[in-house]
């Protein structure tokens, strides 16, 4: 297809974001309240301009020379997303230690050419470092072992 993917991609993103905010403003937010500017005017104005930029870039994409994109590393992407998610899910329930161990390990094996041995060493070292700095030195009030793992 004779389109420029970078222009098309950014155009579509701006269009989607612009339309989403326009639609939401239109549905929920009054443009004026008691004669003064309401909560809707300012976002509506901006979201319409963003939508316009999106349309412009899409039109431009069809007129410019195609351009390639670097391939996405799906393995890396998935593991990094999991790494942050796991941390968010673990920290309040299982505690800082399990959260850090799991999250660091997932991030450490994200590169396609990572090896397990290094990943384990990095995980242990970084976890120890973070607990030392954040929990013991700075005294942040997070349980190292969370309520779900406590025996009592």
């Amino acid at each position: 297809m004779n389109t420029n993917i970078k222009d098309m991609g950014s155009g579509v993103m701006f269009l989607v974001i612009g339309l989403a905010f326009t639609w939401n403003t239109w549905r929920h937010l009054p443009l004026t309240t008691d004669g003064a500017i309401g909560p809707g005017s300012f976002p509506l104005g901006i979201s319409l301009i963003v939508t316009g930029f999106g349309v412009g870039l899409i039109i431009k994409a069809m007129r410019t020379a195609p351009e390639g994109l670097t391939p996405i590393s799906w393995r890396g992407l998935t593991l990094i997303v999991l790494s942050v998610l796991v941390f968010a899910l673990f920290i309040e329930r299982l505690g800082v230690l399990p959260a850090l161990l799991a999250s660091t390990f997932l991030a450490a094996i994200a590169p396609s050419d990572s090896n397990w041995k290094t990943a384990v060493i990095v995980t242990v070292a970084l976890t120890a470092f973070c607990i030392g700095v954040f929990i013991y030195a700075l005294g942040l009030p997070y349980p190292v072992i969370g309520p779900w793992l406590r025996l009592t």
Binding site: I80, S83, V84, L85, F87, A88, L89, I91, E92, L100, S103, T104, F105, A107, A108, A110, P111, S114, T118, A119, V122, T123, L126, C130, F134, L140, Y142
Partner: peptide, 25 residues
């Protein structure tokens, strides 16, 4: 290979320390 997990973990833990909020993650 070592810096990458360090950066991920520092940003994750760093964001969490701001409001102690899982939602921020």
């Amino acid at each position: 290979s070592i810096m990458l997990p360090a950066i991920v973990v520092f940003s994750t833990l760093g964001v969490y320390t701001v409001n102690n909020s899982g939602f921020d993650l």
